[in-house]
Design a protein around this nucleic acid. Sequence first.
DNA 1: GTAGATGCAAACTGTTTGCGAGGTG
DNA 2: CACCTCGCAAACAGTTTGCATCTAC
Lengths: 138, 138
Amino acid sequence: MGTLLQHCEKIGLRLTDQRRAVVSVLENARDHPNIQDLYERASQVDPNLSIATVYRTVKLLEELDILTKLEFGDGVARYEIADKNHHDHLIDLKTGKVIEFYDEEIERLQKKQAQKLGYRLMGHRLELYGTPLKDKNG
Amino acid sequence: MGTLLQHCEKIGLRLTDQRRAVVSVLENARDHPNIQDLYERASQVDPNLSIATVYRTVKLLEELDILTKLEFGDGVARYEIADKNHHDHLIDLKTGKVIEFYDEEIERLQKKQAQKLGYRLMGHRLELYGTPLKDKNG
DNA sequence: GTAGATGCAAACTGTTTGCGAGGTG
DNA sequence: CACCTCGCAAACAGTTTGCATCTAC
């Protein structure tokens, strides 16, 4: 599969310093950064970067199905690389931490439910909101 | 359970013409109206109404758990009365129509999955996006 | 060399808020 | 009559865009 950068080359994206910076930040992100996050991190790589370019780059990558936009209802969009295996998200209500999970059974039932309603499932969005059962540090 | 208006009286909400108008629109809505929808419909009842009041009323009702805010990722918030039985949404990608459904099995699995991750499930958001299996009109 | 990408700042959209006036309980 | 609510318009936050300039290919 190679790096995200290589993927961008392969599909003929014009690779500017700014795009390289944003892409490398995305590649190394272990969280789900929003635009501001991306801007701040990528600015350290390319201080020239403007936030408008981050918006443009992210939108481009989203349209190319390289990125997935996440919206957890707090008004800011977050992003993650789309080529990872599909998963859903559990949001820790205490800390805001986002945990990824995949439940085959739920996936199957969603498809079934859509069919029952007369639809072919093209996508879905599942977010669980929860509080820790017990504190690991106490 | 009575009407939404009666509920608002009971909890001591000050009932102005504007709030009455917005509440009655909500009560009669068979869809999931956004702020603009509410403003336009309620304006026919009370032409005095300003959109700022719609925002304020809706936010108030949301904080009182009378309304639920829905965000389907298109940038506008939609609302529905919260006291209805819980359900999730399927969005018709062709028409934008929103269909409500409830799947006990999925609900159960979500709770289970959250527990597996060490969390108590406090809420969730499930949206299915699909295209019609076949057109009803031929 | 040229189509496409960038920075900047202004424009836009959805939403919130300060204020003085007005209405509800 | 006191406090809450209203309309208005200005303020806000996140995002998009027009334009002149610059750059990757």
